[in-house]
Nucleic acid binder design. Structure first.
Lengths: 138, 138
DNA sequence: ATCCTACAATAGACAATGTCTAAGTCAAGC
DNA sequence: GCTTGACTTAGACATTGTCTATTGTAGGAT
């Protein structure tokens, strides 16, 4: 994730303790935290960080294309640091846990012109839903 | 949509003016209203209907499988009365307008076991994003 | 090493969407 | 036409996110 910090510095980002902490929290595979979860973990490392700063920083990371926003359910947006490898999501309908998945096939090719209604289609997002192993057992 | 009212009566629904109005508002193809939009249109027909009733009724229709919830963007949930014909959505990234689409292919078959992480996968939701004809022109 | 200044962080008010509760109302069966 | 329990209502409350005015500070200039 220090790669990330380097990249951001190269883009003229001013490096602050708050931004470093947010970037650290968002490190790893299959990480999909809500803004509030990011805030909670950031506070653990830097108690005086404010909610607004976390929201601002997340918004900046999204604008810069370093983090993806995922809206898999009706609740809070989640932030996915795995922005540089295209993927889709598998969501547990019960507990909300999320995994990154890489289906075969190309859904963009599956949308015929007659179904495009004159839109310029640029992107597609696939969300699989089901029960995770824990919730299946219960 | 009177089909719908009949089906609901058959399931023991008490028929009220409020529920009838909500069902009427949700009639048609490519209809994807937010709860507030449903409320606004319902008020036009029945001025004293309350917000809570609209939310309750929408929730009941979703539970009964007569209406789908669609969360295409970070904003309000939308309600899709086209619940009995499986379909996906094409969303304008600029203005948020939505069309129902029917892609070829079967994305469920495109998720190998090795990418299921022990989940029991039951459903898949595909959201295409792009610019609608209006927003492309602008 | 210290100073400046524009950019960043803060607290908290505000906004949008959705949920809950207590009390009153009414559809439908008797 | 009663009765009753399901339905509706108004508005308080909860959650998530945004904005603003003020204070602080990173990093270049001196």
């Amino acid at each position: 994730m220090s790669d990330l910090l380097e990249r951001l510095r190269g883009r003229g980002w001013r490096m602050t303790a708050q931004r470093r902490v947010v970037a650290e929290v968002l490190d790893g595979e299959h990480v999909h935290l809500t803004a509030d979860e990011v805030h909670a973990r950031a506070v653990a490392k830097l108690p005086e960080i404010s909610r607004a700063t976390v929201y601002n920083t997340l918004g900046e990371l999204v604008s810069l294309g370093e983090v993806l926003e995922v809206a898999t359910d009706r609740r809070a947006k989640r932030y996915d640091p795995n922005a540089h490898r295209p993927h889709h999501h598998l969501v547990c309908a019960q507990c909300g846990s999320i995994r990154d998945v890489h289906p075969t096939g190309n859904p963009l090719a599956d949308l015929p012109d007659s179904e495009r209604f004159g839109f310029t289609v640029s992107d597609v997002e696939v969300t699989y839903r089901g029960l995770c192993p824990n919730c299946t057992a219960a």
